[in-house]
Design a protein around this nucleic acid. Structure first.
Lengths: 190, 190
DNA sequence: CTAATTAGGTCAACATGTTTACGGATTATT
DNA sequence: AATAATCCGTAAACATGTTGACCTAATTAG
């Protein structure tokens, strides 16, 4: 490692430089930009780690974080009747094409099943199989351990506050996504 | 710990068909488990959206969020002499093999260059090319717009607090990762 | 009853991430 | 000097994400 900069350790510093465009003007502007840079970089890093450590925590069940999220959604009481693919894409914030692949893998393993919705025969209702329910139950100890380890030092208030910030961020992202879709004219209808 | 199934969402209803679920009164345990579930699910959703909207925001530059992160790290003043691949993997929290691919793409586009470190000839020093510096400069307006839109409604204190929570979470994840590596004995190191 | 819309599947191309494994060069250790 | 450890590239297999395009079936709007 040696003398090269960029130390992710302890009290690390900004990752991206304050925009060189604004030149050296150590005003509130550059400080604010720096703060924003760090926030998004933290989000990027933390998300990478969530997938890595989360998948490894459930390694013995052969379930990735994405599959974990899907199984969790299906295990929810409110999903007892099953969830349509469309609702799932909106819930997980991923594309339909991507979800098809993950669902195919889960179906191949016998954890979920696809049934035609009798109300709307275009729609497929995704639901847990008995094996899927069993797998979900088996996962709980590892999930609990993962939560405890990952939230070490977090009080209930901390968790609540963190979730609140993430929720606001998510909501803004959704708005950004909507605006981007508009400019590119993807689903112009309103 | 909680033994009830996860509920990725509690506020956004539009998940599935109307399924009234006025059931047993939630104890503190289930409420705590619910809170944790939602936090991690929010993180998962938000990360998905960050990559999606972030990449699209920089679409005109053909730069993804990952490349964005790398260019930002290289543009940092502390990286003026370049960054080693090893430092980059630690900074971005991704594997070396993954980084090789992304760096190859950036190098093919002429945005970065790899040089042999004269101090340690095993090490490659990654640095921005002039074209990379120019691209980074060109990206700044879109980055600023993206930040503004994504952080709409966030005060400086909010950003700071959100970053703090993400940092704590990240630190815990790193600890989890270390523990996982120990148990599986991947990189046995003290 | 046509016509448009919607719900999903599928296929393809691509970028990103993981893992295991091997190899080559260099540096550090004994 | 021989051995070990480190840095990095490469390869393969896999899961995950994106986009675009095309297709089928079913529902809905005219």
């Amino acid at each position: 490692m040696g003398t090269l900069p960029a130390r992710p350790d302890s009290e690390d510093r900004p990752i991206t430089a304050p925009t060189p465009l604004t030149q050296n003007r150590p005003t509130d502007d550059t400080a604010a930009a720096d703060l924003r840079n760090r926030l998004f970089f933290r989000l990027y890093q933390t998300a990478n780690l969530l997938n890595k450590t989360g998948t490894r925590a459930l390694e013995q069940h052969g379930v990735t974080t994405q599959q974990w999220a899907i199984l969790g959604a299906l295990a929810d009481r409110r999903s007892s009747g099953g969830i349509s693919v469309g609702d799932l894409t909106q819930l997980l914030m991923v594309s339909r094409q991507n979800l098809t692949g993950v669902l195919a893998r889960l179906e191949a393993r016998g954890l979920i099943q696809r049934m035609v919705d009798e109300q709307d025969k275009r729609s497929r209702v995704i639901g847990l199989t008995d094996k899927g329910r069993q797998t979900w139950a088996d996962m709980q100890p590892q999930i609990a351990d993962f939560y405890s380890a990952s939230l070490s030092g977090f009080s209930s208030a901390d968790i609540s506050a963190a979730m609140h910030y993430l929720e606001d961020l998510r909501r803004n992202f959704i708005e950004v996504e909507r605006a981007q879709g508009e400019s590119t004219d993807r689903s112009a209808e309103a």
